[in-house]
Computed example of a mutant assay.
Amino acid sequence: MANVQTYLEYNDPLTIIFRSGSPTDPYKDRADSLPVINNMITLLEIPSKSDRVTIAGMTEIDQEVFENRPSLLPTEFLVNYSIGAIQVHSSLEGTAQLCRYKGKGLIMYPASRIYALTNRNPDVVVTLQDYIEEIQRKLNETYDGITRLESTILHSVEVTERAILATDNANQATEKAETAAKLAQSAYDTTRLVFLEPVATLQDIPSKYPTPLVGWTVQTYKDGKRYRYDGSRWIEIDIFGSNLQVVNEYKDGLMSIAEHLKLKSFPIELKERVIAFSLPDAVQGIIENFIVFPFKGEITELSGYCATSGELVTILSLEKTRDLKNWSEITDRRLQFEPNQNFDDKKVTFRNINVEKGDIFRINLTQQGLGINNLTIALKIKI
């Protein structure tokens, strides 16, 4: 290494910072988890030889023992107390080991004594100090370049300001056009209606349409209400059918004048009334379609059918109340539609056939067969 003397003048001494180990300046207890690299562990401080180094599950051996060995065992380690290096078995490569020792301090080397062989033709040595000086020179050149760049940027800013001033009038015209476009878009957003497939209730809308757009409109078929998404929430906009007029002798409404007159011609003394529940799109659970019976009477018959049968069994009950709080089933056996059957052809018996004026009836669909649709439940009451 002929070039070593050129780069290393031996005028930068080592700096050693050691504790004395006295009660006023004791060695420092260290417990460092350190990696194994090239079969070596490099401690963060120089260890005290008298206090030794310990590694859990491993045994330290002396240099004299190691010299008579071809290699270390996986549970053995050898410590160089002068430089703070630990040699271990190659099987521990890449692992982390917890090393406990008392730290005496540090040995700090000057940058002029840390070298690198840049190539082998011949052995050229470059010190860390050389690299630091080269980096500083490059930084100085960079600072000069930044100063020139800042001057160029300042000139560009002046040119840009003149260009911005020249485009102000064009920007004002553009803003007016954008304002007009926003007003038109706002009018479009507030009136746009995109009708989607209906759901059962308002609570079902977020799960059916989790990422809605402005104007999406969904109807809930349990109550006929329509909801429109305004960009942040679903707003009720109308109730389907609320604008239908009641029929009278002079004007059609929910039925024609002829149907109205025919209905009025029926004799009032008819003795049997029918409560019919029409469930085109029934969903399992309590059907919130209550019917109040206005007469006193006796139940004579309960029957049901469906236009489209289900693939599995469907079970429902008819319940009665007077206060909308306490409901009771009126039959000993619930109506039951077997798979692929359109009728419940088994006769039911009633727990109490008496009906008082003002009794309220509802359907409880306790089990819904897959695919069943258009249910109709009829309750006959003799008055």
Rank of each mutant, 00 (worst) to 15 (best):
L117H: 05
L117Y: 04
T118R: 01
D123A: 02
V125H: 08
V126D: 03
T127C: 02
T127E: 07
L128A: 13
Q129Y: 12
Y131P: 00
Y131S: 13
Y131I: 12
E133G: 05
E133C: 06
E134S: 08
E134P: 04
Q136V: 15
R137Q: 08
K138H: 09
K138D: 01
K138E: 14
L139F: 15
N140F: 15
E141C: 11
E141D: 10
E141N: 15
T142H: 11
Y143C: 03
D144I: 04
D144A: 10
I146G: 04
I146P: 00
I146R: 07
T147A: 11
T147G: 07
R148A: 03
R148L: 03
E150H: 09
S151F: 08
S151Q: 15
S156D: 12
V157W: 09
E158R: 05
V159S: 11
V159L: 08
E161H: 11
R162L: 10
R162D: 14
R162K: 11
I164D: 07
L165C: 11
A166Q: 12
D168R: 01
D168L: 03
N169G: 14
N169H: 07
A170Y: 15
A170V: 14
N171V: 12
N171E: 10
Q172M: 06
Q172W: 12
A173N: 09
E175Y: 15
A177V: 09
A177Q: 13
A177E: 13
T179R: 08
A180Y: 08
A180F: 08
A181K: 06
K182R: 08
K182Y: 12
S186F: 01
S186V: 03
A187F: 10
A187M: 03
D189A: 06
T191H: 12
T191D: 10
R192G: 04
F195K: 13
L196A: 02
E197N: 12
E197M: 13
P198T: 02
P198F: 03
V199T: 06
V199E: 03
T201C: 00
D204R: 05
P206W: 03
P206K: 07
K208L: 01
Y209T: 01
T211H: 04
P212S: 00
